[in-house]
Write a protein that binds this DNA or RNA. Structure first.
Lengths: 275, 275
DNA sequence: CGCTAGGTTGAATACGCTCAAAGATCGTGG
DNA sequence: CCACGATCTTTGAGCGTATTCAACCTAGCG
C-alpha cells in the first residue's frame, strides 16, 4: 500500500518536474534524486513574466540576479555603431540568463525577449542555499557554464568559417537539439520564434540575404517554414551540410569519464554540395 | 628591526609574484593579501614546458587537469572539414586553459602552443584546496570565467559585424590590452607571435586577405609590424575604427558594484573612415 | 646550402551587401 | 470586426569586399 502511494508521489513529482525545463535539462545531464528535484523546484519560487520584444536587461545596467527561463525565448545582443547589432546567443527554456552577475554585475550586453517570457529570478543567496543542500549542484551549474562555452565556440565557427547556407542550417540544428532536450520538438518540427532579421543579426548576414538563404534551403527540399514552424526534412543531409558536430549537444555522454565512443566533428575531405 | 625584515619579505614576495602573470592578473582585478599571493604561488608547483607549434590537447581526448599559462602563447581551435579551421581564442600569460575539464573532460576542441609554452597544471583537488584556504578565490576564478565569456562575445561581434579592416584592429587592441595587464607591453608596442595564417583563422579571413589588410593598416600609418613586434601608432584612431568598447577589458572597474562611470560601447552615428 | 613554412603580389571570380520597392502579416484601436 | 499602421518578408539589380588560384619572394633551420 505504502509502496503504491510512494509510486504515485514519484509520478506526481515527475509530472511537476517536467513543467520546469531546467529540471528536464538537468535530468538529461544525469539522473536526479527525488530530493534534488525538490530542491530545484524551490529555485522556481518566483516567476516574472516579460512581454514579447522587450529589452529587459540593458548594457551598462547593474544586474542583481540571474534568471531561469521557464517559458519562451530570449537573446543576448550587443548594440554596435552604425545601426548594426550582433546577437551573441539565445536563451531557450531551461537556460540561465546572466549566470555571472554576481562577479560581473555590470553587463556590457543587453538581453531581450522574443516571445512572452517567463523567468524565475534567483540571487547568489538562493544558489548558495542550493549548494548547501547538495554540493553536487555546483558541478551541475558548472556543467551548464561549460556547455554555454561550447555553444559560443560553435557560434564562432559558424561566423568565421561557414557560408550563409551552412550557418543557417547549423543554427537551425542547434535550435532543434536544444529544444529536443526540453521536450519542445515534435518529430522534426519545432517553433522558431526569431524573425529573419534576428537570424541575420545572429549569423552576421543582411536580412535580405538571410531571406534568400532560407528560400534556397526550401527550394532544395531541406527545410520548410510555415509561419514560425520549422521542419527539418532531411536530417542526415542537413548535418552534412552544416558540418554539424553532433556530439557537442549530447551533453550526457560527455559528462562522465567513460571511454565509449562519442562522435565528434570529423574531417570530411569531400565538398558538401551547397547547390 | 622586525619591521625592516617584514618589509624586505614583502618586497621579495612582490617580486616573486610579478613572475607569475596569473598573480598579476588577479592583482589587477583586486588587491591580494600577502597570504593570498602565497596561496596562488603554491598553485605553480609544477611547470611543464611545451615546444612551440605543438598541439598538446587534442579534440576528443580526455582532460585530467587545467593549466595556468606562465609564459608564451597558445590558442584553442576547431578543425573543420575541407582543410579549414577556426581559432576560437588565445591563451596569454596569466590565462587558464581548459577551466571546465572537471565537468567536461572530453574537449571537442584542440589547444596548440604558438611559442615555447610554460604551463602549470593543476587538478580539481588543487583548486579545492585553494578554495579551502580562502573562499574568496572562488569569486576570483568565476570572474575569470566571466571575462572569458566577454572575450568570446567580442570575438562573435568581430566575426559577425565587422569588416576585415575593423576585425584586425579589434584583435590587435585586444592583444595589447591583455598583455598590458600582465606587463608585457612597452609603450604602444608588444610581441604578437601568431602568424598571419593564424590571425586569418581567428578572424575568418583568407591568409591572402589578412596580409593585404595588415599592409593597408601599415600604409594608413596606423600600425607597424617588424618581425612579430607590433606597434600601435594611433591608439585613439584605432579604437574608433574598431569600435572598441574599451571598458570590457578594464576588469577592475567592473568588478565592484560601485557606480562610477564606466565607458562602454557607445553608438556612434557617424561612419568611421576605413579608407 | 637547400628545404620548408611564412609572407607578398596580381588577376579573375563569387558571395553577400546595399538600395529600392512592393507584398504579407500582425496587433491594435476605432 | 474591420481598418490602418507597423513590422516582417519578398524580389530585383548593381556593386564591393573578400576569396581563390597561382606565382614568386624571404627567412629560418637542419
Amino acid at each position: 500500500m505504502d509502496n503504491a502511494i510512494k509510486k504515485v508521489e514519484l509520478l506526481i513529482n515527475k509530472l511537476m518536474a517536467s513543467d520546469w525545463p531546467l529540471i528536464r535539462k538537468c535530468s538529461y545531464i544525469r539522473q536526479l534524486s527525488h530530493d534534488e528535484i525538490d530542491a530545484l523546484i524551490k529555485m522556481h519560487k518566483q516567476t516574472r513574466i516579460i512581454k514579447a520584444r522587450k529589452t529587459f536587461l540593458n548594457q551598462g545596467e547593474i544586474q542583481k540576479q540571474s534568471f531561469i527561463v521557464t517559458q519562451g525565448w530570449a537573446y543576448r545582443y550587443y548594440d554596435l555603431s552604425n545601426e548594426k547589432r550582433q546577437i551573441i546567443n539565445y536563451y531557450l527554456p531551461g537556460d540561465i540568463i546572466s549566470p555571472f552577475f554576481s562577479v560581473m554585475p555590470r553587463a556590457n550586453y543587453s538581453v531581450a525577449s522574443i516571445t512572452p517570457l517567463h523567468v524565475c529570478p534567483f540571487s547568489s543567496k538562493d544558489l548558495t542555499e542550493l549548494y548547501a543542500f547538495s554540493p553536487q549542484f555546483k558541478t551541475l551549474f558548472e556543467y551548464m557554464l561549460a556547455w554555454e562555452d561550447v555553444l559560443l565556440a560553435e557560434q564562432v565557427c559558424r561566423l568565421g568559417r561557414q557560408s550563409a547556407y551552412q550557418r543557417t542550417v547549423h543554427l537551425l540544428l542547434e535550435f532543434y537539439h536544444r529544444l529536443k532536450i526540453v521536450g519542445q520538438t515534435e518529430s522534426n518540427t519545432f517553433i522558431s520564434p526569431p524573425t529573419q532579421q534576428m537570424m541575420a543579426d545572429t549569423l552576421g548576414l543582411s536580412f535580405v540575404h538571410m531571406n534568400r538563404t532560407l528560400h534556397k534551403l526550401y527550394n532544395d527540399n531541406l527545410i520548410s517554414i510555415v509561419a514560425h514552424k520549422v521542419s527539418l526534412l532531411d536530417n542526415f543531409k542537413l548535418k552534412q551540410i552544416a558540418e554539424y558536430p553532433g556530439a557537442y549537444l549530447e551533453i550526457k555522454k560527455q559528462f562522465s569519464f567513460d571511454d565509449e565512443h562519442v562522435q565528434g566533428r570529423q574531417k570530411m575531405h569531400h565538398k558538401v554540395s551547397a547547390a
